[in-house]
Design a protein around this nucleic acid. Structure first.
Lengths: 333, 333
DNA sequence: CTTCCTGCTGTAAACGTTTACAGTAAGTTA
DNA sequence: TAACTTACTGTAAACGTTTACAGCAGGAAG
């Protein structure tokens, strides 16, 4: 009685059992109306034989897989988990399944991923990339299935996109300067990534508007995680001269809180800290983390909805959404 | 030049272009040796036509989808994210793809999930469930594809399983009592779940061995998350009489740290806290969290490896692995 | 030289669906 | 009643692969 010995009922079996053509079975399954006397025979046969339509047969014939592929650069990062959750929220209400693509941190991983989609294992693609590259752009433009882009990676225009507006750092800076005054340190992630670059730009501009050269008030972590944040902060000399720290994401903010706690510097009374992403982490840290919200779960939901809408109706206009940053105040600032 | 107008090259096209039979193309693609003069013609045709084999055709004919389905009760919980990461670590080295199943918190969701696998969209199933039920057990036993179970849900024996040994709470208790003495509170998750039940049992037994009735030193949160933990703890009267708190997972421990911080109770000097799961969270909290490690990422890797091994060779003996708890000491205890 | 391998080839038949098409019965209209 | 419409039916042909099978060339063995 091992799994492999059991054999599945097919539509043919159902048709024979119900004494009906296979086409009628197919039509019934796909929600078309069938003759009154036929319907009960089919339902009976289906449950008697425990029939379930075979995905591969269906996919081959209809060239629809009922699968959506989601690319997640790094599943360890809470912000991607939140986005994934948003995508699931929507997909779970439909009969689409969610494929989690392999890690796509590097350009090569991105290219391999986009390339693989040519194998037709997904009907739609939700693309998230930390890196930008002409090769990615080119490969992406050759994609044969509709895609939604979450984030600010640059691709061709015939695609629904959900970007985040640039103002996060500016927002944080204004808030911190207004509230506390003093000097502000920006703990950034790698500027080789899109958010790293954009946030750096945001910081420098915001500082420039205040007549300050921001370059002397920045430190760059090697990646967007806690360890890299700790390393980066340990290189900052005389950290206590700062009145506040803006961190490029919540994990770096967690690193900041940790560093400051080790140094016995009180947050927010001596130094205030603001993160970006407003992930679940923010509520868990102590002090709880003031963070800029980019509505990650909502972005995931939006992306899923966009891809479903487009699959439903390929001709709808491409939608370009910008999510505005919103400061969520907690204890750390 | 919209995606839908482009048409894909098939194996027939490649065969024609290479002036070779379709069977030879298929064989070449699947790694069989072909005649010397044929191989370059095929490779050339493939790249000229940019041919990629169609997953559906392949799946239908070979009845292999190259997909593994992973069920994750609740993707918000860091421990499942870590397990997912482990699974990915292994799958990404192969040409199997990862399907993330919809949430399966309730019995009904589990039944629907298991049932859906009959549609043959996955070659293997990695099953994780928080709940236990005869119906689940029965449905699971009818599964037509090999499965690996992570966790202590009870199913039939013809399955590879990766359980966690029961000793976590006992381990934490011994450590806390030895180190700090005094009374210990157990902050549990819902006892309607398998881990909740098991951890309660572990606590009560461990207490009994010390001649204490544990039932008076337990509090049950409604779910395994921070909010529920806060609510549960707020109901504990005179919390400061305890010398330490064992929490059934890291999220509940985060809640405990938060509560205690609000109450200005110092951790670990007044009350020590231990979590279970040793997720990324442990290093991020302050004070950093002492936690019982059940090697989540490794469990994910093991599960993926088990399923791959079994797909490779269905006759291997079913493996039953027990992961022993290990206390990872940090600041909170 | 024949016989037997060995190692490759191409032909053709699946795999389980969906769907274009033609057919038919019943209802509607004139 | 005949002619048309409506609403369903069944037949059969795809969809793009893999693979059983038979065929064939060339080398080894006798």
């Amino acid at each position: 009685m091992s799994p492999s010995t059991k054999t599945r009922a097919t539509m043919h079996d159902v048709a024979r059992e119900a004494n009906v053509s296979i086409a009628s079975v197919s039509r019934f399954i796909n929600g078309q109306t069938v003759r009154e006397d036929i319907e009960p025979r089919i339902t009976k046969a289906i449950s008697a034989l425990n029939f379930k339509p075979n995905s591969a047969g269906r996919a081959l014939r209809a060239s629809r897989t009922q699968q959506i592929c989601l690319s997640v650069p790094d599943i360890s990062n809470p912000v991607y988990q939140t986005i994934t959750k948003g995508v699931q929220n929507i997909l779970n209400k439909t009969d689409y399944r969610l494929m989690l693509a392999p890690r796509n941190l590097s350009v090569e991983e991105n290219l391999a991923l986009i390339d693989s989609l040519d194998s037709n294992y997904a009907d739609g693609f939700i693309f998230l990339s930390l890196v930008d590259d002409p090769r990615i752009r080119k490969a992406f433009s050759k994609l044969r299935i509709p895609a939604v882009v979450i984030g600010n990676v640059q691709v061709h225009d015939e695609v629904d996109t959900i970007k985040v507006s640039a103002g996060a750092v500016e927002l944080a800076l204004t808030y911190l300067v207004d509230k506390y005054g003093g000097e502000v340190l920006f703990l950034n992630g790698p500027t080789s990534t899109i958010p790293g670059r954009n946030r750096e730009k945001g910081f420098l501009e915001a500082m420039k508007n205040r007549g300050i050269d921001g370059t002397k008030h920045m430190v760059e972590a090697e990646s967007f995680d806690v360890e890299a944040g700790l390393v980066a902060l340990s290189k900052v000399k005389n950290i206590s001269k700062y009145r506040s720290i803006i961190c490029a994401n919540d994990l770096l903010a967690a690193a900041a809180l940790r560093s400051l706690s080790t140094l016995k510097i009180d947050v927010p009374n001596q130094i205030a800290v603001i993160g970006i992403d407003n992930t679940d982490l923010a509520n868990v840290l102590s002090p709880s983390l003031t963070s800029i919200d980019y509505k990650s779960e909502y972005r995931g939901e939006l992306a899923a909805q966009f891809i479903l809408d487009r699959l439903d109706n390929p001709k709808t206009l491409y939608r370009k959404v910008n999510i505005a940053p919103e400061l969520v105040e907690r204890e750390s600032a």
